[in-house]
């Protein structure tokens, strides 16, 4: 086990049933996408209950109309990962707004056929991120907020 794998495994609670698989995938993903990092945090479910889960949080590079943007995302891994898909969100900064659409709801939750049809071992984090980058490149999930306009200038007669 590499040093990175060892430190990720230490972070990952024993409630995770497939720790070695999960650690290996995360290690690979963060070696490929260096702006994503593993974090433990409380995830709040729809029923209000919360659980400490590992997430991959950071940005993915998305090319849109000739420019590359670092789109902020958070991928939550359930303790049954990789047998259940991650729960994925875009995380707009205060300077951004969510663009809802087929793949994004008003909370920033990401919906993709890849997640819906998730099946280990054909589906994995690296494949998911690649799909996100393609889909977001066609339809960005966030846009910059318009800069604040100065008040309408008073017309002096």
């Amino acid at each position: 086990m590499t040093l990175t794998e060892t430190s990720i495994k230490k972070m990952l609670p024993t409630q995770y049933k497939y720790r070695d698989l999960t650690v290996r995938e995360i290690t690979y993903v963060i070696s490929q996408y260096k702006d994503l990092k593993p974090l433990m945090d409380a995830y709040v479910f729809n029923d209000g209950s919360s659980r400490d889960l590992m997430s991959l949080t950071g940005t993915v590079p998305v090319s849109y109309r000739g420019n590359t943007y670092n789109i902020p995302v958070c991928l939550w891994l359930l303790d049954t990962y990789p047998y259940n898909p991650p729960i994925c969100f875009v995380k707009p900064t205060s300077a951004m707004m969510i663009k809802t659409g087929k793949h994004i709801d008003a909370n920033g939750k990401i919906y993709l056929p890849y997640l819906h049809e998730w099946k280990h071992p054909q589906s994995d984090l690296i494949g998911l991120i690649q799909v996100m980058i393609v889909v977001f490149g066609e339809e960005p999930p966030v846009f910059s907020r318009p800069t604040t306009q100065p008040p309408f200038p008073a017309f002096q007669a």
Partner: peptide
């Protein structure tokens, strides 16, 4: 682990 890139998004189109 690193600090990560600064998040960015395309400009709003009108």
């Amino acid at each position: 682990l690193n600090g990560g890139a600064v998040p960015s998004a395309p400009p709003t189109y009108t």
